[in-house]
Design a binder for these strands. Structure first.
Lengths: 219, 219
DNA sequence: GTCTATACGGCGATAGAC
DNA sequence: GTCTATCGCCGTATAGAC
């Protein structure tokens, strides 16, 4: 069904990329045959090679796509600020929606990092760049929300990304697992980290002394 | 070269398992051919099938091995308590050493979770069990160190495991990355989480209000 | 320019004889 | 335990159809 003199090629590319993202996220790079990709996308195997050169070219394209989607998601989640705490809640809600509705994005990035970063320096560099940009986006969101540069905000980004990964892996092992608790915890931690950076005395106030009235005990 | 009437079989198994753990962690399950395993371990390809039945049997054995090593590592790290903060430092040091010296253990577990948990329910169950046990071990460590049950200690375990994953992935992307900062952060967070559970008013005290004298600003 | 049909060399996992 | 054989799928090249 030709719709004009121009390429339907883009649509084909799109379908291939979609299938590839899905299958790579499910079974990994090495575990996904080009045959399967062709079958899943309904496009001849060799057309894939026509469009992307080879399997690694396809991988790069998929990666690029997932990275953009991810960063964009984080960025959008962070931008709608009003007051700082509101911005944080918005950002967390956005991240949570991403884990909930499109978990394959993060899973794909994570899986490919572990699977191919070792062997393919190009891919590793791309990956490092992606995670760096993601962190920068978070740091930028914090800066925008508070109006000032928080010293050591990088660490906050790292922690958020780490917990996000944890959520994805946790979901993989138990799909029923509630995200509620995780993101509430994440909120507390982020608030604590930022607050203790704005007012260093705060960090010291917490200690492991048991209060007089323990909430629960073994006896 | 026979060295006695008894099996050198165990040694062979050992060598295969060692090579498998190494290669699975490096290139993933699907990405590692049995040919390569044979070459690496210096044992005939089909002997691998003799010992483990098939590739999946080998996977299960490798998993079991890595899981035991991991849990054992966490357990040992947590047990040498004296005062609570000391126990935490010991535990963190142990985890850090694990990430630093034997990163392949966690990487293997992580990679296999993402790669094969979807398709092989048995493996997923085993994986879930492993992570559950790891968390239980952490929770037990906290209980032992403090002498009481901390309510919601599960969440502390989840956060620690998430950050641990983050460290492994981060190292994968940048092997030079310092673990110092990560584990210091982890310490602060754990102390905060435990303290705010023992004394819930603490959690509320942190807020995102900017103090009068910001440490850094854009102006 | 965009895609399909067919073919091929190689390596994957596995079985059975020794 | 090893050796040899089998067979299917893997990634890829080429030749042409639309």
């Amino acid at each position: 069904m030709p719709r004009g003199p121009y390429q339907k090629s883009d649509l084909t590319r799109e379908r291939i990329l979609e299938a590839a993202a899905e299958l790579f996220a499910q079974r990994g790079y090495a575990g996904t045959g080009v045959d399967r990709l062709a079958e899943r996308s309904g496009i001849a195997k060799t057309a894939i090679y026509y469009h992307f050169g080879n399997k690694e070219g396809l991988l790069a394209a998929v990666l690029d796509r997932a990275a953009s989607a991810w960063i964009e998601n984080i960025r959008r989640a962070a931008e709608r600020a009003s007051c700082p705490e509101d911005a944080l809640d918005q950002a967390l809600a956005g991240m949570r929606a991403m884990v909930d509705e499109r978990p394959w994005i993060l899973k794909l990035l994570l899986l490919l990092t572990l699977e191919v970063a070792d062997e393919k320096p190009e891919i590793r560099k791309a990956m490092a760049e992606i995670f760096f940009r993601a962190r920068q986006t978070i740091v930028g969101g914090i800066r925008d929300a508070l109006g000032i540069d928080v010293p050591g905000a990088d660490a906050v980004g790292n922690v958020m990304l780490g917990l996000l990964q944890g959520a994805v892996v946790g979901r993989e092992l138990d799909p029923e697992m509630s995200l509620q608790a995780i993101f509430e915890e994440m909120r507390n931690i982020v608030v604590f980290m930022v607050a203790s950076r704005l007012d260093p005395s705060l960090g010291a106030s917490a200690s492991l002394v048991i209060p007089q009235t323990p909430v629960a005990s073994e006896s």
